[in-house]
Every structure is written in C-alpha cells, then in structure tokens.
Design a protein around this nucleic acid. Structure first.
Length: 736
DNA sequence: GAGCACTGC
C-alpha cells in the first residue's frame, strides 16, 4: 500500500515512543510520508477508539488532498472514517476517526470546546512553517497536555533545524528523525553575493556566450565583469544551465511580480537570441499569486519534447505549489515579507534574506523526481553566518489584536495573556499594542478584562475592527450593510480581476464607468455599493467579468457574508438581507450610520488631516505622517481638501506610508475616542503585571550573548538584522 | 499619483 514510504519502517519505534510520552516531535523531511502515515499508524494501534485523531495543516488544499489520499489508502469513503474540515466545508460525520483540518479550524473549535475532548491525538503538521495559528496552538496544546493528563497524545512535525527547540518547549520530549524520500541535490554557492540577483539568475540560467564581443565594447563596469567571467573557462558560478546541463526544468525563486516580469522578459530575449539547433527549446513561465488561476495551472502541464521550462516564481513555489519536472533550482536567497511595527501600527513589505529552513526547502524542490542541482546566488559564508536558522515566526511579525482577543475569550483561569507560554514570545511592546487597540474598541475594559462585546467579537472570524463594526452596526440599524463591508474587505485582494502584462495598463487607469464611487465617502462605502449592485444584477457572473471583478473573489465574499450572517443571527436586531434603499435620502442616512459604526470599530485606526495639506497624522500611535492611497475613492471638498478625520483599514509602507481603504468620519464621533486615549493607562490594561514583566524580559535580553539573541528571535536584534539585510539588498540592487 | 509575498477563520 504505502510500504515504499520511509516512515513505515519506523512504525514500531514511533508508536513505542508515542505510547511512553505525551508529546513527541517528529522530524520528517519532504517525502517521508508523515502527513499521510502517522494518522494511519495511530489508527492501527487503536488510538481512534477513544477519540478522533486530528491532523492540522497550514493550508486548505493540503488538508483536503491529504485526507483524500488517506481515505483512498484505507479504502473508505471520504467524509466517513476519514474526513476533513476547512472553512465553509465540513466533510466529517459521526463515523470519522481521522480528521484533517486547517490549524485555523482547530483554533475555532477550541473556542467552543477548550479541552478538545473529542480528540485522542492531535498532530500539528508542518509546525516549522510557524504560522500564527500553529504558534497559538502550540501554546494551547502544551497546556492541554497537562490538563488532560495522559488522555491526550500530541505529535509535532517540524524541520531539522527546529526540532530541539520544540522539544525543549515541551519539557525535552523525545525527537524522532525520519528520513525523507528526496533525491540528492547538489548545492552550489556563488563566490560572492551578486550586485543584482536578476542579472545573476539570468546568467545562471542562460548565459549568452554569443554576445561576448558586444559586451566588450560596452564600458559599463558591470557588463565588463560579466563578459570577463564568461570568457574564463573555469567559471562554475556561471553554470549556464540551459546550454550545459541535460534536460530538466529550472525553477527560479524571485521576490515579487516586478522582478519576475523583468526576468521573464530578459529570458525571453535570450531565447530569441539562441542559435537555431544549438540547444533545446525553452518556455518561460511566470508563477505568482496575483496571476489568474488559469495562468497558474500552466505550470502543471508538462513541456513538449526537447523543450526545457524555466519557471520564474515567488515563494508560492516553495510550499504552496509543487511543480513536477524541476531538476534545477536557482535561489536568489530573498523573500518579500510583511512585518508589523507595533509602535507605529504600520505594516511594511520588505525584501529580506530567507532562513536556512527556507533555503533547504527551496533546494529540495530540485530533488523530487531525480537527483538535482541548486544554485544559490549567495556565498556559503552568507548562508552560514547571515541566514537565520528558522523563519521569523509570523507571531513576531503581525499585529496581535486578534490573537490576544481570542486568547482572552477562552477565559482559561490559568492563562494570563502576558505570561502566555509561546514557543517564541512576541515582544512585550507588541502585546501592549494589542491590549491598547482592544481597549479602544471596547473589547477589553480598562483593567484588561474581556467585555461582553469583546466576547462576541471573538466568535466572529474577522479582525477585531470589523467585528466591532458589526456589533455597533447592529445597534444603529445597518448590520446588513456592515456585513457586506466586512465580507468585501475579507476578500479584498482577490477582488479585482488580475491584470496581465502592460496591455491592460490603460484599462486599469480607467475603471469601468458604471462601478459605484462610494459617494465620495471612501472605499468602505464603495465596496458596499459594488456588492449591492451585484445583488441587483442577481449575482450574475457575467456582471463581475464586465466590471473587472474576479468571479472567484466575489463568490468568496458571498460565502463569507453568509457565514457571518449565520453567526450574527442570534443577536441580530434587524434584517440581514441585502437590500438597497432606492431613495437617495435614505441611502445617505444608511451610509451615515455605517460610517458611524465604522468609526467605533476602527477607533484604533484613526487619522487626522494636517492643517495645510492633504497628508494625515495617525492618532493613538507614535504619530506618523501618512497619505491616502491614490487608489482610494475618497473625495476632496470644493477647496480640494480631504475630510478632517478618517478611519483606515490598513497602514502599509510601500514606496511611502499609505492608508489603504479609508472612510470619512465626523468630529463628533471622534471626540469620545480622543478622550479615551487621554485616559489610557497601559499598566492598568496589562493587569498591573506589565511593568514587572517588561523589566524581567529586558533583563533577560541584556544578559544573553549576541549570537543567542538572534537564535531566540529577540525583536530588537531581528530588526537590525532585517535592516542590515535590506541595506545589503538595496546596495546590490544598485538603487542610487 | 501607486502597484502586495503567502496563508487562514
């Protein structure tokens, strides 16, 4: 059946260890079969008699596909003995003994059943990816093991570099290693880090020897450098894969859409310049998240004979999508990562060095079908000395308002959020920021206790600002509209139809004239109007296409809205049906109520316009000068000025700090928030224990040697490393 | 006047 999988030989040892220990860490490399086999072994050994075996996955597709395979191997119908649960889709039944689910779903389940009594075993799979949800589950599960004594078994699968740390976290529980089923991958390092990883990737993939003469004529030093190296016979760091290496596809890791498009066009140019018959044909395929699905699936169809594919991808190819046929990997060593700064409340999207775990994951992509090669565009010294062992966990890069509210809502007597046992604790500042934000939106009182409003908010699968908006909208009679806005914002990035290439550039600058404009109040109102119009068009798919909206995204909005409506049903005061009022005056009154509810919900995301110009200053954080994103539909008055106060959905620094998705609010609604801010006492909010913990944690940090700090992921050190990496990156990219 | 990596409830 699955006897070819390496893990099967270890069954006795694994099961003996599980029997003797409450928690076991399993280090299983790619292809070991851990995701499909562990649950079946436990089933065979009778662990499914006393409860269900739960296996969490960070991604929906993984939960579904692994469940499907296990059902097949056991010869049962999916949804019976073996099932899965993801958002909007619960394919389990009373018969279910093995259940695959996303970590988010398990977290939601523990809200209604904090001890997760239905499960006899919980397997946290892919824990090394360190998703926000997995990290919270790790803390909860650690507590559960104590609470449920010997009745619960926990298995955690992770990566080599992380295993010991997880084991320490669980009182030095045993760590078992299971080999993977990857073919050997030869790793090649560059001698030094390149000035430009686009150029360097290009050279590695397809150096153009025919152009040497032309290059010599140019006097640009970089160009000369390239020709010099090409002309030397011992140049292992310019491997010229396409010309020198036997068949097999090439996967190139870039950081984002921009770089991908640049490299794709350069590669295409080189393919044009190749001498007829000198080597095999080549197809260049971009692969990134904002590519429409029909273009993404192109990477799954095999190339025509005598043709090599070059897949230029973002991180999406690191874990989410597996491309068959890849034998060569080119790794830039960088990734685009979102980080949150709790003192400014701002997110930024930075290009940072990947971790060793990521580098190895990328390399592994070359060895799935036969021995492969990985070309690292950085030196082995950089890998050893600069790269972090493990990716900085999401919990240290995100706003924690939602997670803190969730933990508070569990109301576990023995858990204090500020002392919560995290594998990698977030900074104290970040926790304080979360408490402050939660207090501003009435989710916790001034002593840090969760309020009734907060309790209901936690039950909604939304970020706190939106949950609070729904609560308030329910009070002032615009819940239906607020539900729509919340659902639209949940899908926002997948809403607009993807633009491919530059031909659509013009279309984007002139959006279809019949899409509503938010009546000048901003983007929330516009999102509401768009959905209402779709409703008036009987949720017609053609209507979406005509208006440049992604059908998938809009269907998702409908799903989310339905789910939220169901959750709100119990407390709803008015109708939850989408219904647009035909009369202008009543519509305006509806918008006013909605904006008012948004102002209450987004009290933690408020900005005040500067006196003389259209820049805004954030309120409630270390003040930042920020701008309304140019894509916003917010209107200026007859003097060309924006409203005095707005709330924003997100603050993100790209080329500059921008507020994305804003809504005009009124001074009268803002005043109570300002008063609340004046009275805010952070030490009281953190239950009085704040100061002592802060001092303790500061002491801890200063007493550690520098190298240890980096390993422990201490934020200050991390930031300087990120900054250093960014400086190096910018210097290489040659941004003058 | 800008453009966002990837997930998930």
């Amino acid at each position: 059946m699955a006897s070819h999988l390496p893990i099967v030989q270890f069954e006795d040892k694994i099961m003996k260890t599980v029997e003797d220990n409450a928690v076991v860490v399993i280090i299983g490399e790619t292809g070991s079969g851990k995701s499909t086999q562990l649950s079946q072994m436990l089933h065979r050994r009778g662990y499914t008699k006393s409860g269900i075996v739960a296996v969490t996955q960070p991604r929906r597709v993984a939960a579904v596909s692994v469940a499907r395979r296990v059902a097949q191997e056991l010869g049962v119908t999916l949804g019976e003995e073996v099932g899965y649960a993801i958002r909007f889709e619960d394919r389990t039944s009373d018969l279910t003994r093995i259940k695959y689910l996303t970590d988010g779903v398990l977290l939601r389940e523990s809200l209604s059943n904090p001890e997760l009594n239905q499960y006899s075993v919980i397997i946290l799979d892919e824990a090394h990816e360190r998703s926000l949800n997995t990290d919270i589950l790790l803390g909860l599960v650690k507590r559960l093991v104590k609470v449920r004594a010997s009745k619960l078994k926990v298995l955690i699968t992770s990566a080599t570099l992380d295993g010991e740390k997880v084991s320490e976290f669980f009182s030095d529980c045993p760590v078992l290693n299971v080999p993977g089923k990857l073919y050997p991958v030869e790793i090649m390092y560059s001698e030094e880090s390149p000035k430009s990883y686009i150029e360097s990737s290009l050279r590695t993939a397809m150096a153009n020897v025919a152009n040497i003469y032309i290059y010599y004529i140019g006097n640009d030093s970089d160009v000369f450098f390239e020709s010099f190296l090409l002309n030397t016979s011992e140049t292992p760091h310019i491997p010229n894969i396409h010309v020198r290496e036997p068949e097999g596809d090439v996967l190139i890791f870039m950081t984002g859409q921009d770089d991908i498009e640049k490299l794709v066009s350069k590669l295409e140019d080189r393919v044009q310049g190749l001498e007829e018959g000198s080597c095999m044909d080549a197809i260049i395929l971009p692969l990134h998240g904002s590519l429409p699905p029909e273009l993404q699936v192109r990477v799954f169809s095999p190339p025509p004979p005598n043709c090599r594919r070059f897949i230029v991808a973002t991180n999406i190819a690191e874990t989410s999508l597996t491309v068959d046929g890849v034998v060569y990997v080119i790794d830039s060593g960088y990734v685009k990562q979102r980080q949150y700064n709790p003192s400014t409340g701002m997110y930024s999207l930075d290009i940072v060095q990947i971790s060793k775990v990521q580098a190895n994951q990328r390399a592994g992509r070359a060895g799935r079908t036969r021995p492969g090669k990985c070309y690292r565009l950085y030196s082995s010294e950089a890998y050893e000395e600069e790269f972090l062992d493990v990716t900085v966990p999401e919990i240290q890069r995100s706003s924690l308002a939602g997670s803190v509210l969730y933990l508070k809502s569990l109301d576990l007597p023995d858990i204090d959020i500020l002392k919560f046992d995290f594998l990698d604790p977030p900074s104290f500042e970040s926790l304080e920021d979360a408490l402050k934000q939660l207090h501003l939106i009435d989710a916790i009182d001034d002593t840090g206790l969760i309020t009734r409003v907060g309790q209901t908010m936690a039950e909604l699968p939304l970020e706190p600002s939106l949950s609070r908006t729904l609560m308030e909208a329910n009070e002032n009679g615009c819940l239906s509209q607020a539900l729509t806005v919340a659902a639209m914002l949940s899908a926002e990035t997948t809403l607009l139809a993807a633009q491919s290439g530059k031909s659509n550039e013009k279309k984007r600058k002139h959006p279809p004239p019949d899409l509503p404009d938010g009546s000048g109040w901003g983007d929330h109102v516009q999102l509401l109007q768009i959905f209402e119009q779709w409703d008036q068009n009987d949720f017609d798919i053609g209507w979406c296409k005509d208006n440049g909206l992604q059908v998938r995204g809009m269907m998702f909005v409908k799903d989310v809205r339905r789910q939220l409506s169901q959750l709100m049903q119990k407390i709803a005061k008015g109708s939850l049906n989408v219904r647009t009022n035909e009369r202008y005056k009543e519509r305006q009154r509806g918008y006013k109520n909605l904006r008012k509810a948004l102002c209450v919900g987004y009290a933690n995301k408020l900005a005040e316009r500067m006196v003389q110009h259209n820049g805004y200053r954030t309120i409630g954080f270390k003040p930042q000068l920020v701008q309304v994103h140019p894509s916003s539909t917010l209107k200026t008055d007859e003097d060309g000025m924006f409203p005095n106060y707005i709330v924003y959905h997100e603050l993100i620094a790209t080329s500059r700090p921008f507020m994305r998705n804003v809504c005009a609010v009124e001074m009268a609604w803002v005043s109570p928030i300002l008063k609340k801010l004046e009275k805010l006492d952070i030490d009281k909010l953190s239950g009085g224990s704040g100061r002592s913990i802060r001092e303790e944690s500061e002491k801890k940090v200063t007493s550690l040697p520098k190298k240890e700090e980096a390993v422990a992921g201490v934020p200050d050190d991390r930031e300087s490393r990120i900054q250093a990496a960014r400086d190096r990156f910018l210097a290489r990219k040659g941004k003058k």
